[in-house]
């Protein structure tokens, strides 16, 4: 039952990684190390005293679960104590919601591309056409999707990927250009906001 102990330790560590997200790196490292140290000592002591791993695992799980409310309140207090800096338009809740909503049709297009390329879906003359069109339908939304998610961390690369992916996707479906081109342009404008290239009209300074 050693796996159960590993699972308990893994869950505790994973939870720690979740609730310390967004805190300054020093605070994150300190909390992570303290929990790691605690888990190490508990495991070590259990080994020395030849306690069954299941009992130790259960105790670790209970310690983790019973401490979750305190972890959350500590996170809220610690997070609130940090200077908030600047909340920009490209990091606002509507932008995040927009990102998720845009990702869904892109995922559907990716699945469509996979179906055409690898499962002979669609009406094409031969297998070469299936693979060629399938890859085109697969790669353009994939590049767009990755670009959208990259836009905040790497604005130039992310935005370039969105432009290439969205325009290529729109032009591939040239017979539907009256729909695909405006959609591609909308995605590009969204990516420009997300990358911070367009004016941040809703920028507000939080008091430190």
């Amino acid at each position: 039952m050693r796996w159960f102990l590993d699972l308990a330790i893994g869950l505790t560590r994973s939870w720690t990684a979740v609730y310390i997200r967004g805190l300054p790196s020093e605070t994150r490292a300190e909390r992570r190390e303290e929990i790691d140290c605690d888990l190490w000592h508990q495991q070590r002591l259990a080994d020395l005293e030849r306690e069954p791993p299941t009992g130790t695992a259960i105790e670790i799980l209970v310690r983790w679960l019973a401490g979750v409310p305190s972890d959350i309140t500590w996170r809220l207090e610690t997070g609130a104590a940090q200077p908030k800096g600047i909340t920009t338009m490209n990091d606002s809740l509507p932008m995040r919601i927009g990102l998720v909503l845009l990702s869904l049709p892109l995922l559907a297009l990716i699945l469509n591309g996979v179906a055409i390329a690898f499962f002979d879906a669609g009406d094409f003359n031969n297998s070469t056409e299936h693979v060629a069109w399938g890859l085109a339908f697969l790669l353009t939304p994939l590049v767009t999707l990755i670009g959208l998610w990259l836009c905040r961390a790497q604005p130039r690369l992310g935005f370039a990927m969105v432009v290439v992916g969205a325009l290529a996707g729109a032009l591939i479906m040239f017979w539907m250009a009256f729909i695909t081109v405006p959609m591609a342009l909308a995605v590009i404008v969204f990516a420009a906001f997300r990358a911070g290239f367009l004016p941040r009209s809703s920028t507000r300074q939080q008091p430190a």
């Binding site: 140290c37 508990q42 105790e59 209970v62 310690r63 983790w64 019973a66 401490g67 305190s70 500590w74």
Partner: peptide, 27 residues
């Protein structure tokens, strides 16, 4: 003392069944 050390000491002194929860202790 470090975290686990004090948790163990509290458990022994108070005859508790379990060690203090991580969140409670470190907070």
């Amino acid at each position: 003392f470090h975290g686990f050390m004090i948790a163990k000491e509290i458990k022994e002194r108070e005859n508790a069944r379990l060690l203090t929860a991580h969140g409670t202790l470190y907070k």
